[in-house]
């Protein structure tokens, strides 16, 4: 198991391959790290960062500095589905707090936490640019708009059943 990143149980050769695709292209660091994050439990823990660093030559400290600046990265493993609930003003004035509370109650977790089955991580996020169809949330790369507390819970149930791609 020497190719295994211990903290992340991800094959380090896969990570190295992603990093190698854009080696020496500094404008692709964001893409490398997003692609890596997708296969590494929605996070870039230190052992994963070390693999990227080894391939690209970018010091681990710089990668840490980078991922802790941008809100969409995490250094701690997250669930299979990262649920980002917008709390900015255009969502706020049309009931985003009620939607967020319904999701939190249904999943039994607070923002920042992950469900015990490892399926969902709940996060608050800032404006996601769906202001004319708010309240809105993102689940990984998918967006859902005009939510009510009930439709948001229905959506979480659909994800639990695996009925959403």
């Amino acid at each position: 198991m020497q190719n295994q990143c211990s903290a992340s149980s991800v094959d380090s050769t896969q990570i190295a391959a992603i990093a190698a695709r854009y080696k020496n292209e500094s404008d692709q660091l964001m893409r490398i790290l997003f692609d890596v994050q997708k296969i590494a439990s929605n996070a870039i823990p230190r052992d994963v960062a070390a693999v990227v660093s080894g391939v690209t030559g970018i010091p681990e400290a710089n990668i840490y500095s980078f991922i802790t600046f941008y809100a969409m990265f995490s250094t701690k493993p997250r669930g299979k589905y990262v649920v980002r609930m917008c709390k900015s003003a255009p969502c706020h004035v049309v009931g985003a707090a009620e939607v967020a509370a319904a999701i939190g109650d249904f999943l039994g977790i607070a923002p920042g936490q992950t469900t015990s089955d490892g399926l969902f991580t709940l996060e608050f996020c800032e404006c996601i640019g769906l202001c004319d169809t708010s309240p809105a949330i993102m689940v990984n790369d998918s967006v859902y708009t005009d939510l009510t507390p009930q439709s948001a819970v229905d959506l979480m149930q659909a994800y639990q059943r695996g009925g959403v791609k």
Binding site: S26, M30, Y70, A71, F73
Partner: peptide, 20 residues
């Protein structure tokens, strides 16, 4: 792609971000 940082809408922050 951006990384979820509002400040990157500021033009020089955006350039820094492109540069990795």
């Amino acid at each position: 792609s951006g990384g979820g940082a509002y400040v990157c809408g500021e033009e020089t922050a955006l350039l820094e971000s492109i540069e990795g």
